[in-house]
């Protein structure tokens, strides 16, 4: 995932919103409603596949790690260049069944982002538009709970791409590995005394730093498949250390 300057703000927002209002929808009910209201046939099919209920134990949840690489940082102007998916269950990451789409954004590609995600102009020349792979993408994630690191970004970019193409946006349940880290390391905003006397610096909850805390290897990030795999591994580590296979999905998802 591409996240530079705005990341800090997003991080703060995500963390504080997680603490303030944990308004997780009743996803199965929400999906039934959306299936009825969606106009696009592909979206309708996606919602009709249903959602797992909140009381499902984690071990039984079909999960799908997702990462999106973009041309830049602004969801309203920048476009998607690649989408990576890695299916997993709690006991195994099925990297062998991962999917990657390179798509042609409707905005120009900047040199700065090329150096980051490594996708070049020539690769994009022959790539399809997101609309051409939308069906495949939605079929692949249907029935799964998505796993991302920083859900705000993925969601905003996806919707930023869908709105001009199909005139609708998408909703789906997500486990956000960054938010799970935030719960541990951002529980209390530092008090006055702590702020006055320096306190402990905040631990980073970015992907690489979070992985390091669980003894996971260093990956070269900013490749949609690597990042998706990296989030999938992080979730496995988080569950192994802090939850259990019997933990209800509802405790983790948003």
């Amino acid at each position: 995932m591409l996240h530079l300057g705005s990341f800090q703000q997003l991080q703060q927002k995500t963390a504080s919103s997680a603490l303030a209002s944990a308004e997780t929808p009743d996803w199965p009910a929400r999906f039934r409603k959306l299936a009825a209201s969606a106009r696009d046939g592909r979206l309708k099919a996606f919602y009709s596949a249903g959602a797992v209920s909140a009381d499902t134990p984690l071990s039984a949840v079909p999960l799908m790690a997702l990462d999106i690489e973009t041309t830049g940082l602004d969801p309203t102007h920048d476009g998607i260049v690649s989408i990576g998916l890695v299916p997993l269950r709690l006991d195994r990451i099925r990297a062998s069944a991962s999917r990657l789409w390179i798509v042609k954004p409707r905005v120009p590609l900047l040199e700065a982002s090329v150096s980051l995600h490594g996708i070049t102009h020539s690769q994009l020349e022959s790539a399809p538009d997101l609309i051409d792979i939308l069906d495949d993408f939605l079929v692949a994630i249907a029935g799964h709970v998505l796993v991302v690191h920083c859900r705000a970004i993925e969601r905003q970019f996806l919707n930023g791409a869908l709105r001009p193409r199909i005139g609708e946006t998408i909703e789906f349940p997500v486990i956000d590995t960054m938010e799970l880290e935030a719960r541990l390391h951002r529980r209390k905003p530092p008090g006055l005394i702590a702020r006055l006397f320096g306190g402990k610096p905040l631990l980073s909850i970015r992907l690489a730093a979070s992985r390091r805390r669980y003894g996971l290897p260093r990956y070269r990030l900013h490749h949609a498949l690597t990042d998706a795999l990296a989030s999938a591994e992080l979730l496995q580590a988080q569950v192994a250390h802090r939850f259990s296979p019997e933990t209800a999905l509802g405790e983790l998802w948003k």
Partner: peptide
């Protein structure tokens, strides 16, 4: 490499 799946194990398991 394409055939690889991944598993994570906490120390002691």
């Amino acid at each position: 490499a394409r055939s690889v799946d991944v598993r994570y194990f906490k120390a002691g398991t």
